[in-house]
């Protein structure tokens, strides 16, 4: 049985990676340079992408808060509508008459306080 190297020697399409040789020939300085380069590249990519990611997250958060704010405003409007409806004068008068026993003042029940003089244009 021939070795894998022997069997593939005549076929240039097949590349045999000889890791031992690669590592054997690699100096420590070069290796460190590779590591620093890769680290810098990753850091750079991270620095570039981080604000974008953060912006995206903030955008989602903002949208969520906007929806929440709109919901609260809707609730406020609905409550004000209810308040306005409950303050309708026909309802107030009905309650004043039926529940509080109030009545429209008659002529004898109205008290006037005389002024010494009233100018024509005085309002």
């Amino acid at each position: 049985m021939k070795s894998y190297a022997a069997r593939t020697r005549n076929f240039p399409l097949i590349v045999q990676i000889e890791w031992d040789k690669i590592f054997a020939g690699l100096e420590l300085k070069k290796f460190l340079a590779y590591v620093i380069f890769v680290t810098c590249f990753l850091m750079g990519a991270l620095l570039y992408l981080w604000p974008h990611m953060q912006l995206l997250q903030n955008g989602f958060q903002y949208n969520g808060l906007q929806v929440h704010k709109e919901r609260l405003l809707d609730e406020n409007r609905a409550l004000r509508l209810e308040f306005s409806s409950l303050n309708s004068l026909d309802r107030v008068e009905r309650m004043a008459r039926n529940e509080l026993g109030m009545t429209t003042p008659k002529e004898g029940q109205i008290v006037y306080v005389a002024l010494e003089s009233t100018g024509k244009n005085e309002r």
Binding site: P105, Q109, I110, V111, Y112, V113, T118
Partner: peptide, 11 residues
């Protein structure tokens, strides 16, 4: 010639 102030019940 008066200042109308208020109404009071049965007075």
């Amino acid at each position: 010639n008066n200042l109308l102030i208020a109404a009071a019940p049965d007075t």
